[in-house]
Simulated scan of single mutants.
Amino acid sequence: MTTVGFLYPGHSAEDDYPRIEMLLASDVRLQVVHTDIGEDAHRVDALLEMGAGERLAAGVEELRLAGAEAVVWACTSGSFVYGWDGAHEQTRALARAAGLPASSTSFAFAHAVRALGAERVAVAATYPDDVTEYFGVFLKSAGIEVVADRASGIITAAEVGTWGREQVLELARAGDHPDAEVVLLPDTALHTAGYLPELEEVLGKPVLTANQVTVWEGLRLAERTVREPKLGTLFASRPSPA
């Protein structure tokens, strides 16, 4: 049994994790602990507070007791707003607090793009413009070219969590670009686990979504490779990067 721990802010699309666990159909357990979200707002000051070290550290004991072998901060915006160096410090502090290998969804995207052998991406974001720009800067720091980005202007995770299949597909279509090798949907508040094969079929290219890459990153840290085509190209055949 491999147990991976996730610190998830508030309550929006956390049911993606048990769905993914079922799809993996393996001896993998995905343990989710909810962190205090503070103010639910895709606004830089609120996101910096959401990702503060003390908020993340508060959940690590429960993950340790659950037998987690690695921990991932399951929040994209609450990590990339710190910038490349700040996000590294955030995960280092989390690793120290947990006594486990640690990462975040932002780094999961960077690692997953590399694992697919891609260099050019399009970003289809639920966020406002300024927050979306922070993600683009983060990706560029990882050596990834952002050929297009689309911001939807949604302020709260609660609203994003209500989006269904049609809205997710429309977001991906609107955010795609002919030069993009991969399309990224970066919000962990967005339900996507049930739509991955359809998203890739509609766009004709790999699609990376926040909760998908977060689980993949946790398994990578735990040195566990699990293949499941229903979770998209990332899980279909590519091994995790070293």
Rank of each mutant, 00 (worst) to 15 (best):
A148E: 15
G153L: 07
A142K: 10
F135P: 10
Y127P: 14
I144K: 10
A174T: 05
V147L: 10
A151M: 11
G153N: 12
V123H: 08
W163C: 01
V131P: 09
I154F: 08
T156R: 07
A125Q: 10
A151N: 04
V137T: 12
R165D: 04
D149S: 11
T156K: 06
A172E: 06
G143C: 02
A151R: 04
A124Q: 07
W163I: 06
T126S: 14
V146K: 03
T126M: 11
T126E: 10
S152L: 07
A125D: 13
I155C: 14
G136C: 03
L171Y: 12
E170C: 03
R150N: 04
I154S: 02
V160E: 00
E133L: 06
F138G: 10
V123T: 09
I144D: 03
F135R: 02
A172L: 08
A158C: 05
T126Q: 06
E170V: 01
G164L: 01
I144R: 07
V146F: 05
E133P: 03
E133F: 02
S141I: 10
T162I: 05
F135W: 10
Y134T: 13
A142C: 15
E145V: 14
F135C: 07
A148G: 15
R150K: 04
V123D: 14
R173C: 05
T156M: 04
T126D: 13
D129L: 15
T156W: 00
Y127N: 13
E166P: 03
S141R: 14
V123F: 13
F138S: 05
R150Q: 10
V137K: 05
A172I: 04
L169M: 11
